[in-house]
Amino acid sequence: MPTLEMILNGKEVSVEVEPGDLLAHVLREKLGLIGTKISCGEGECGSCTVLVDGFTVTSCIYPAMKAHGREVTTIEGLAKGSQLHPIQQAFVDVTAPQCGYCIPGMVMSAKALLDENPHPTQEEIRMGISGNICRCTGYYQIVEAIELAAQRMAEEGGAP
């Protein structure tokens, strides 16, 4: 079995995987990071979105070995202890989550977007989450949350 070594949420991790394992399964089953959700398993909904070197990928179809030597961020890597990441806090504050199943993936897409473009227009936010399907919310409060997060992060001045 090959060993997958990566920086996962800021920590070096090495884990034995099958060559054909997909990243979502390694995260969920081998590393217990159940925040990464599987909905379609076919790259069609974005529920399983994680960041690899800062870019969003659908981990349900992403060969785990591709993450070898890379930096992987999952939803569990965002909050600092009890302190939610500003994006997460904004999702709570505008009541964005309904069932919540799409939400980790949405937050990760939002994170990649704001890291790259701290002042997105509404259209850019929509583009940023256009690969994430939500069946509950109609997306408006999600877009609103991302706008709010961008605004707050800009006010705090710090890097996200």
Binding site: P97, G100, I103
Partner: peptide, 12 residues
């Protein structure tokens, strides 16, 4: 805030 919102945004 919704009772379950924080755990849902954390993925926990």
């Amino acid at each position: 805030p919704k009772k379950d919102a924080a755990t849902k945004v954390r993925g926990s």
